[in-house]
Amino acid sequence: MTSNTAPPRQPIAIPRTVWVLGVVSLLMDISSEMIQTLLPLYLVAGLGASAIAIGFIEGLSVAIATVTKLFSGMISDWTGRRKPLAVLGYGLGALSKPIFPLATSIGWIVVAKAVDRVGKGIRGTPRDALIADVTPPEIRGASFGLRKSLDTVGGFVGPLAAIGLMLATDGDMIVIFWIAAIPAFLAVALLIIGVKEPEQPPSSSKGMPRFRDARRLNRAVWIVIGVSSLLTLARFSEAFLLLKSQQAGLSLAWIPVTMVVMHAVYGLTAYPVGYLSDRIGRRSMIALSLVFLIAADLALATAQTLPMLFAGIVLWGLHMGFSQGILSTLIADSAPQNLKGTAFGVFNLATGLTVILGNVAAGLLWETWGSASTFLAGAVVALASLAAVPLLSAARQPAQ
């Protein structure tokens, strides 16, 4: 006697390509965080930079990355190829790492950051578009969350390595910068060997990719871009978290522990949040992320002790875990299949421009009225972003 009961639905496995791209991100992030965790301190103590200069350098780095993200996204749609651009981007990131220990002035640091950010800009958009290409919509949130989680494992392994090496080398940052190059080159090798992209038809557009191709993006994509830009304005560079840690009383060798804690929280939450968003929706996750950001800003604005500092750092990590993978997933949900690279490129351009404004403003506020003003301003903008979250209800549309 046969049963009419349908067999239980088998869970869909996350594609191997997503796992490999996650590990590649992990290795590159270990390298980058080993340098980035110490760089603000090196700029201030070793090269005499101000908070305004740090804000400018961070903002310029983001500007370079965002412009290249737009071009790489458009080119990846035009050619139908994602992997070559990703390899080029990760390769430039690896090649930038030896410049940091060789730098003798702020100008050379700017050059190193520029090369690194060009690489980041080139690789980020085709990598995200490749994840969207290989992942079924039913597990898209989990896939982007997994990639973010693996990336952020590097985000706390890197600072942990920096702490251990600071203690082992008696604070020799130059040696640490040299060691940081090793995982970057391993990331490039793994990407070349381990990723095989699916066949994608090249764009039907004639000639080279054009900026006006962005006008073909649908309303849903533009809503995500607009809300994401406002949210990004509220969250400035983690360089200011490191400077705040020094103010709160952490010794130089132990300041990287703030990034260990932040990235540990971020990494542990990104995948579960992405998985959950596949089942209950994305909008509530973004709203919660902003609540965490407001609480983080208020804690950091008033932090005079280490417990209050680390409360703010944990809340900041929760904000990152609840927002970053979800925003990428919303773009993947909303963009037409033949314009996913362009959509990610425009998304990264728009959010990157707002990061520039946020970083420069954060530096000016810090120098003029102190660190509390920087975090209080962030809380105000985050509150405004929270009011815009309902607009995302129109963002999830089937790709055309």
Rank of each mutant, 00 (worst) to 15 (best):
Q200N: 10
G363M: 03
D29A: 10
F236V: 07
G358S: 15
V195S: 06
G141N: 02
G164D: 07
R123W: 12
T135R: 12
G119F: 06
I75F: 10
I64K: 12
A335V: 02
S203C: 08
V257R: 12
I163M: 07
M28K: 08
S203G: 04
A63K: 10
L318Q: 01
A382D: 09
S204M: 05
D213I: 00
D213G: 01
R282C: 12
R283M: 10
L70S: 00
A264D: 13
I193D: 09
T5C: 09
F211M: 13
S31N: 13
A114D: 09
A301K: 06
L293D: 00
I356D: 15
T169I: 09
A372Y: 10
L252A: 14
A239K: 00
P198A: 13
A362S: 15
V224K: 03
D278G: 11
A114Q: 08
A270Q: 10
A162H: 09
A103G: 00
L252W: 14
A6P: 08
L167A: 10
L70H: 06
A181D: 08
K244W: 02
L160I: 02
V87I: 13
L306V: 13
P11T: 10
V118H: 13
A384E: 07
T368K: 08
K120P: 05
L88N: 06
L364D: 04
I192P: 01
R127K: 15
A384L: 15
G141S: 03
L318F: 06
L243E: 02
K69G: 08
V314N: 05
S203P: 01
Q400R: 15
I294V: 14
G249V: 11
L391P: 03
A49P: 03
T351M: 15
A387V: 11
G48P: 10
V381F: 12
I182W: 04
V44S: 00
F100G: 01
M74I: 10
I182V: 13
Q400M: 15
T37G: 15
L290E: 03
A295T: 02
A382P: 04
A287T: 04
I106R: 03
Q400F: 14
G155D: 07
M34V: 09
T374D: 10
Q247M: 14
E367C: 06
S334I: 01
S289P: 14
E33S: 00
V380G: 12
G46P: 02
